Lab assay of single mutants.
Amino acid sequence: VTTYKLVINGKTLKGETTTKAVDAETSEKAFKQYANDNGVDGVWTYDDATKTFTVTEMV
């Protein structure tokens, strides 16, 4: 189990959250659901070296 981080650069929501998951794909699903639940829709990137997802909304 690995800890993954999500950085949110939204128009109205900014911040970070973490989750523990067995792999990046599992954490990505959880993070995308979290973003969707909070009305964040944007461009996703992933940095495997830091286990960090970033979602950026276009303004």
Rank of each mutant, 00 (worst) to 15 (best):
D23Q: 03
Y34V: 04
T54F: 10
K32S: 03
E28P: 00
V1I: 12
N38E: 07
Y34Q: 02
D48W: 06
Q33F: 05
V40R: 01
A30I: 15
E28A: 11
E57W: 06
Y4K: 04
G10L: 14
G42D: 01
L13D: 05
T54D: 02
Y34E: 01
K29M: 09
Q33N: 07
T17W: 15
K51I: 02
V1G: 11
V55Q: 00
W44M: 03
A21W: 04
V7P: 01
G42Y: 03
T50E: 05
T56L: 05
K32W: 06
D41C: 12
T3K: 08
K32V: 06
Q33D: 08
E25K: 13
E25R: 12
A35P: 01
G10N: 05
D41T: 14
K32Y: 05
T50V: 05
V55E: 01
T56G: 03
F53N: 01
W44N: 00
K20W: 12
D41P: 03
T17A: 10
V1T: 12
A21T: 06
G10R: 03
S27F: 03
D37Y: 08
T52I: 05
T19C: 15
K51A: 05
M58W: 12
L6A: 02
E57V: 09
V59L: 13
T19Q: 09
T54L: 05
K20S: 11
N36I: 15
N9S: 07
T56E: 06
T18R: 07
G39C: 08
Y4T: 04
V1P: 10
D23N: 11
T54K: 04
V59P: 12
T2D: 10
Q33T: 08
K5F: 14
G10V: 12
Y34S: 01
D48Y: 07
T3A: 05
L13G: 08
V43Y: 11
K5E: 03
K29N: 07
V7C: 08
A24E: 07
N36C: 14
E25T: 10
E57Y: 07
T12W: 13
T54H: 06
M58L: 13
T56K: 05
K11G: 08
T56R: 04
T12G: 09
T26N: 07
A49E: 12
G42I: 02
D48T: 07
A24C: 14
Y46S: 00
G39T: 03
Y4Q: 04
N36Q: 14
V55L: 10
K29V: 09
M58G: 10
F31N: 01
T54Y: 12
T18H: 10
Y34I: 07
E25V: 11
Y4H: 03
G15D: 09
T56F: 07
T12Q: 10
V1S: 10
A21H: 04
F31G: 00
G39E: 05
D48F: 07
G10M: 14
T45Q: 08
D41L: 11
D37E: 13
N38R: 14
K51H: 11
I8S: 00
A35Q: 01
N36V: 13
T26M: 10
N36R: 15
V59T: 13
D41G: 07
T17E: 05
D48M: 07
I8N: 00
A24P: 10
E16S: 12
V55A: 02
I8V: 08
G39Q: 08
G10Q: 05
Y34M: 05
D48H: 09
V59W: 13
K29P: 01
V22N: 09
V43A: 08
T50L: 07
L6I: 03
K5L: 08
K20L: 15
D23T: 05
T18D: 06
F53T: 00
V59G: 14
F31E: 00
G39R: 05
F53Y: 08
F53V: 01
Y34C: 05
T45A: 08
N36H: 15
K29G: 05
T52Y: 01
Y34A: 02
L13Y: 14
T45H: 10
D37R: 08
T17R: 13
I8M: 07
E25P: 09
V1L: 15
E25D: 09
M58H: 13
M58S: 11
D41M: 12
F53G: 00
T45L: 06
K32R: 15
T2Y: 14
G42P: 00
Y46F: 06
T3S: 07
A30R: 13
V43H: 09
N38K: 13
K51Q: 09
T54P: 00
E28L: 15
V55I: 10
Y4M: 01
Y4I: 05
V43K: 08
V40D: 00
N9Q: 11
K20Q: 14
K11T: 12
K20P: 05
A24N: 07
A49H: 09
Y34D: 02
W44V: 01
T12F: 14
Q33C: 06
K51E: 03
T26E: 13
T17N: 05
E25S: 11
N36Y: 15
A21G: 07
L6W: 02
K29T: 07
I8L: 08
L13F: 15
E25A: 14
E28I: 10
E25H: 10
V22K: 13
N9P: 02
K29W: 07
A35W: 02
G10E: 02
E57L: 08
T3H: 07
T2A: 10
S27P: 04
Y34L: 07
A30N: 08
G10F: 11
G39N: 09
K51P: 01
T56P: 00
T45E: 10
T17Q: 09
T45S: 12
F53E: 01
F31H: 00
V22T: 12
M58I: 14
Y34H: 04
V22D: 06
K29F: 07
G39Y: 05
K11L: 14
D41Q: 13
K14V: 10
F53K: 00
D41S: 12
F31T: 01
K5S: 06
T2F: 14
V43C: 09
T19A: 09
T50N: 08
E25G: 09
F31Y: 02
N36A: 15
G42E: 01
G39V: 03
L13Q: 08
T56Q: 06
N9E: 09
T19R: 07
L6G: 02
T12D: 09
E57F: 06
A35D: 01
V40W: 08
I8Y: 06
V40A: 03
V43L: 10
N9K: 10
V55N: 02
G15S: 13
